[in-house]
Amino acid sequence: MRKFIPILLVSIIVLALSSCFLAKRVDTRWAMNRNECKKLKGEVLVYTIFVDSKTSKPWVGYDIQSAVDSVQYAVDWIKEKANAEGVPLNIQFDYYQSNKKFVPLKKELPDKSLYKSFTLEVKDGTDKINKWANALAKKVMVGMGSSATEKLPPGIPKSNLSKLVSKLKKKYQVDCVVLLFMMNNYYIQDAYVTCNYGSDDEIEYGINSYKDPSIIAQQIITLFGASPLQPSSLSKMQVQYLGFAQKEFPKDIMVDYKDPLSVLEIGAYTRYLIGWTNKIDPEYEKLFIMVKSNKNHKQIKMYK
């Protein structure tokens, strides 16, 4: 018996470790109150920065106006859904202009496309993208007539992104700022990414190379803690029971990004994650289980 106990203990530890490795049980709500975009309530600003690069097409009037329309449509859709749930939410939307003149900011991506930039060696890719976003944030602040030396309260990352967000909060009198960098790929398929939304080290933001309102709405909601319910090779982790989610919430914005917003909804699970409800049906708790993403599947987080 005395010999059996150590073997049993070792077995339990090995089993526990292996299960941690295979499937990590995480309450994805942990991301909801982290970083800049916390609960999707109160006063929120969606601030868009249009970026030109050699790997995307230059922004021209029609593309800008239709992209602005798409963001506005996505914002209105989220507000309408919040209203229907009795959630107090006001979202302002604005985009960067210099002296009331529209100027896309020029900055080359770290690689040939957004997808390639983000899928460089994971850590390196994120660092490079953050460096890219910080350089743009600095340009925005300079364009707004602000120095990049603004002091920040303790506990907030000392980056240009933080400083920009802090400045925007003061200017627009909001609780949260959603930063969206938009690139013009009107005929090229690339990717859309949400950066740092579980991080304490850097401000979260989205980069989008599409102007589809469904994708923009999904991206905004993701920043507020919603969990993607579709496979993605751009994420390190994904929900294990995606099939269950797709069956239970076929028209949830986090499941379906191909249909128009008019037929999509924010399902009970997503409403819980973005802080619109405090309770969740125990049946859906299995959706908290995250596993490592399958990097081999072909359906990457691209719009098709």
Binding site: Y62, K101, F102
Partner: peptide, 22 residues
């Protein structure tokens, strides 16, 4: 008359289509 950038002299098919879309 707006403040947006526009295509002026398209020098390839992509820019011609961008101009036409605009």
């Amino acid at each position: 008359t707006d403040s947006f950038p526009h295509v002026t002299k398209p020098n390839n098919t992509e820019r011609l289509i961008a101009l036409l879309r605009d």
